[in-house]
């Protein structure tokens, strides 16, 4: 057994999700090789080499990997696969991993396994279907398992203590004329990343406007929390898309999740019901969010939230 983890990074730093993915790789067993492909990814590859449990780091520096397009990364992973014959290829279930891994799987003619939440054995994995309303355990019959990993279900691997050997990935002409990365417009925030945050304050349609999210930012400041949103709030244009939590947005599992003005559609619950403690503030006592909340407060959020912020 040997696993290739496709690292997600911005050349400088490693996305923490890669650490959760390395833990999943260790649970499968065997050697763990991490592929770091980028334009000038020295710092990221050095960070990976120190991660506990990493046997080897394959580094590929090439202008072709600007923007980490699947059209350029796929032939690189295929070249590494043909050289090292990994039994498993993993990446985090992020926008990056979800974009790239299925392309690799199709080229290898295997059926990828999306967003696993547990590893039962080297060929048997657990994942959720129907927005988390059913748990599927499946056995893969394919010779190579191509898998994305839900970060919240695997603890991060330690960022020190490892001593992975750094090698060059197979060289090749990976430039693709099919697509071209142009730019990223990232939402700037001093707050923690949603998927890694210990506390999340989340708002829904009940906030009534984007301006009213200020109430949540003030509350979040008290906790050093991230701010998230339901699909309804994103669709209404209150906040940008990257704040969306749910079946089709981000999956989170913080220590504390405070849902404000969120009714609790199953699609939203799918993204947050693994949170350790859930607090719901909603004026509708019948809102489904109260069925999963550990602590519920039936109240007008426009009064309750400022009062709560004041008392912390």
């Amino acid at each position: 057994k040997s696993t290739l983890v496709v690292a997600e990074h911005n050349n400088e730093t490693l996305n923490p999700l890669t650490l959760n993915t390395i833990t999943a790789a260790k649970k499968i067993g065997g050697d763990v090789t991490v592929l770091v492909a980028g334009t000038k990814c020295g710092p990221a590859s050095e960070a990976v080499a120190k991660v506990e449990g990493v046997t080897k780091v394959l580094v590929a520096e090439n202008a072709a990997f600007k923007g980490f397009t699947p059209e350029s990364l796929t032939p690189l992973v295929l070249a590494a696969q043909s050289q090292f014959k990994f039994t498993h290829i993993l990446a985090g279930a992020s926008a990056f991993g979800k974009n790239v891994l299925p392309r690799i799987a199709a080229k290898l003619d295997v059926s990828p396994i999306s967003e696993i939440i547990d590893v039962k054995s080297e060929d048997t994995f657990v994942r959720t279907i129907y927005a988390g309303n059913a748990i599927l355990t499946l056995k893969s019959k394919d010779p190579v398992k191509v898998i994305t990993v839900r970060g919240t279900n695997f603890p991060p691997a330690a960022t020190s203590g490892g001593n992975g050997a750094v090698e060059q990935a197979p060289a090749g002409d990976y430039a693709s004329s099919l697509s071209e990365f142009v730019s990223q417009e990232l939402t700037k925030s001093d707050r923690p990343e949603l998927t890694g945050a210990k506390v999340i304050i989340s708002g829904g349609r009940g906030l009534k406007s984007g301006d009213n999210f200020k109430l949540l930012y003030d509350l979040a400041d008290k906790f050093g929390a991230a701010v998230g949103a339901s699909r309804a709030a994103v669709d209404a244009g209150y906040v940008p898309n990257d704040l969306q939590i749910g079946q089709t947005g981000k999956i989170v599992a913080p220590e504390l999740y405070v849902a404000v003005g969120i009714s609790g559609a199953i699609q939203h619950l799918a993204g947050m019901k693994d949170s350790k403690t859930i607090v719901a503030i909603n004026k509708d006592p019948e809102a489904p969010i109260f069925q999963v909340a550990d602590i519920g407060l039936v109240a007008d959020l426009f009064k309750a939230v400022p009062e709560l912020t004041g008392k912390l």
């Binding site: 396994i113 959720t128 893969s140 019901k273 006592p285 069925q291 519920g296």
Partner: peptide, 18 residues
């Protein structure tokens, strides 16, 4: 390409106190 081993209900989350 796969075999379904099982499809189960997710763990139920108990509602807490209001």
């Amino acid at each position: 390409r796969i075999e379904i081993i099982s499809v189960e209900d997710p763990p139920v989350r108990q509602a807490g106190a209001v």
